[in-house]
Design a protein around this nucleic acid. Structure first.
Length: 571
RNA sequence: GCGCCAUUAGCUCAGCUGGAUAGAGUAGCGCACUACGAAUGCGAAGGUCGGGGGUUCGAAUCCCUCAUGGCGCACCA
């Protein structure tokens, strides 16, 4: 497939003085309105270099360009050179390309040989998996898929919150008020209730806190009984999390959480000391980050125990030594911006030049209509409930629509859960939002079901077209002139820019770029579908149109896959 | 108090490495199912791009400033 922008830049370079091809390429733009052309070149900046009025320059460039058969038409409007691509060749190339590559369309080897670590989801053990956790989980999963698609070696890490004094409290509470059966039946619910009770009781009885701290110290020292309970809580919690991960179709390569790094920290405390970065302050050990405009980072508490930041430094160094990453990505809420700035700066101060390869990818806050989420105060929406209700609602709609299918449960799952994921990945990550049932269960407009519906509709057309036509289309034997109308061409252009959207999404760590692009493809498809009849009597025309439908279907399916969403063939 | 982020149509949001008349969805209004799936499409309407300065041939986009909202700022993670 030809790269049109590169080609145009080369052609322009023949009549533009004083600019490199690369600079020219960057100036080539896509007009806001397609009536003004497929590509445009503004000549304002050339006025100084070429010492002529911009419209004159545009006219000269345009006349020369117009001779090339790449274009159907070249127009000069004031200082702009507007280029209209010759549609037939373009449409033929792109549709063939997509069909031929099929599920590989959009993939590349851009990242071959480079390792990217994606840390995401990372829930706390023994705490509920609520709607707030969906963001890191789903954004991280899509970023992993984007990098995988671009040929990077990827490692998915679920950095579980499975360590800290809270586990001393948990064990303490379990011994006092817990029982085994309840934990096995409903691990998160039971453990959470013990934990909550602990906080209530500790208000009146400070000795509980002391007891908890003592238990945590034992846990750290590897006392078998404490270790056993901790391991059991962890296993049971993970089992429950796995249910949600299963529903979302999400997997990890490693569940090494905070506890994994508990014995890897003393080395860095020493190293910080050796490099004279550590300072005593109010009984604790800190790194002064004042020169960098940040508050000091607390490395060890006054009782000598370590903190979150120390574990993150240890984890980063371990990962560099163990995986030798090209990039180490952290999909963590924007609330922790300062934390990441601090520890990445400390890694830099330690002299590790790979500090800049550690990237915090923040996202905005989810709140509820009645305020921020609070597990303890009962203001919480469980992710599992959201997914289940979305699936139920989808089932209702399918029954209403009377779609004849035998696998209604499976499809309802794909559509309902897909809707939740899609919505999560529609907007820029950084936006805060307020969760609402109305919104999450609304399937009209720019939603996952809309895109999936479009895919199912395309599949339906292909089924009706029959094998002979489909096979002819697949082999690339079609007459492109039948698919050069505005609606068909608009769709083809979006198929062409799909791989660029993937690269942009990966570079920006922003899955919504892909989400938006497949919405655009779906809209263009539906416009084409309403505008043109596909299964016409004329065999040649039918084959060409079926080829376009097939290409659109493939691209939508591939795009949904990058978001972690299934593309059912019926719904 | 300091720092980071956000502010675009009634609502939810794209557009931000400067480029032509600022785009979608949604709500409300009007239209299109005897053709391949109406979970669809089309049309009209809807704007001081938070305010004010500045840079530029050109600013929603870059710089300064103010306002509003969110988040963070030492022994939680």
């Amino acid at each position: 497939m030809m790269n049109y922008k590169d080609k145009i830049a080369q052609l322009l370079a023949q009549s533009v003085e004083g600019l490199e091809v690369g600079e020219i390429r960057d100036m080539v733009e896509v007009p806001t309105d397609s009536k003004m052309g497929d590509y445009a070149f503004p000549c304002f900046r050339l006025a100084k270099i070429m010492r002529k009025a911009p419209p004159m320059i545009a006219k000269n460039i345009g006349e020369k360009l117009g001779e090339n058969q790449l274009f159907a038409k070249v127009e000069c409007v004031n200082a702009y050179v507007n280029m209209f691509i010759a549609r037939e060749a373009f449409v033929e190339d792109i549709v063939k390309e997509v069909i031929e590559k099929n599920e590989n369309y959009g993939k590349s080897d851009l990242g071959a040989g480079k390792k990217v670590i994606v840390e995401y989801s990372s829930p706390n053990i023994a705490k509920p998996f609520h709607i707030g956790h969906i963001r890191s989980t789903v954004i991280g999963n899509s970023i992993y898929k984007l990098y995988d698609c671009l040929g990077y070696d990827t490692v998915r890490i679920n950095h579980l919150g499975d360590y800290g004094t809270q586990f001393g409290k948990m064990i303490c509470a379990y011994r006092r008020w817990g029982n085994e059966e309840d934990v096995i039946k409903q691990p998160i619910k039971a453990l959470l209730s013990y934990y909550t009770k602990f906080h209530v009781e500790a208000e009146n009885d400070p000795s509980l806190d002391e007891e908890a701290r003592a238990i945590f110290t034992k846990l750290e020292q590897g006392e078998p009984e404490e270790k056993r309970l901790w391991q059991w809580f962890r296993d049971e919690s993970l089992k429950e999390f796995s249910k949600v991960y299963g529903m979302l179709g999400i997997e990890f390569d490693s569940y090494s959480g905070e506890s994994f790094y508990s014995d890897k920290m003393p080395r860095f405390v020493e190293e910080l000391k050796d490099k004279k970065l550590l300072k005593a302050s109010q009984g604790a050990q800190i790194v002064d980050l004042e020169p960098y405009g940040m508050s000091p980072a607390l490395i060890t508490k006054s009782d000598g125990s370590t903190l979150y930041i120390t574990r993150d430094i240890a984890a980063a160094v371990y990962r560099k030594e163990h995986y030798n990453f090209h990039k180490n990505l952290y999909i963590v809420a924007s609330q922790q911006n300062l934390h990441f700035q601090q520890w990445i700066k400390i890694v830099e101060l330690l002299g590790y030049d790979w500090a800049e390869d550690c990237v915090h990818i923040p996202f905005g806050l989810v709140s509820l209509e009645d305020g921020t989420m609070s597990t303890r105060e009962g203001r919480v929406v469980f992710l599992e409930d959201v997914l289940n209700r979305a699936v139920e609602q989808t089932k209702e709609i399918i029954k209403e629509k009377n779609v004849n299918t035998e696998s209604i449960d499976e499809i309802a799952k794909q559509v309902g859960i897909g809707a939740v994921i899609f919505q999560e990945l529609s907007n820029n990550r950084i936006k805060d939002y307020t969760f609402s049932w109305d919104k999450v269960l609304n399937f009209d407009g720019e939603t996952g079901p809309y895109v999936q519906y479009t895919h199912a509709r395309a599949c339906s057309v292909l089924r009706k077209a029959g094998d002979i036509v489909v096979n002819r289309a697949k082999s690339g034997e079609f007459t492109p002139s039948f698919i050069t109308g505005d609606s068909a061409y608009g769709l083809a252009k979006l198929l062409y820019t799909y791989p660029e959207a993937i690269v942009e999404a990966a570079e920006k760590y922003e899955p919504s770029v892909v989400t938006r692009h497949i919405i655009n493809i779906a809209q263009a498809f539906n416009r084409f579908y309403n505008d043109q009849h596909v299964l016409v009597d004329n065999e040649e025309e039918k084959i060409a149109k079926v080829a376009l439908v097939m290409a659109a279907k493939d691209a939508i399916r591939n795009g949904l896959e990058l978001l972690g969403i299934k593309a059912p063939e019926k719904m």
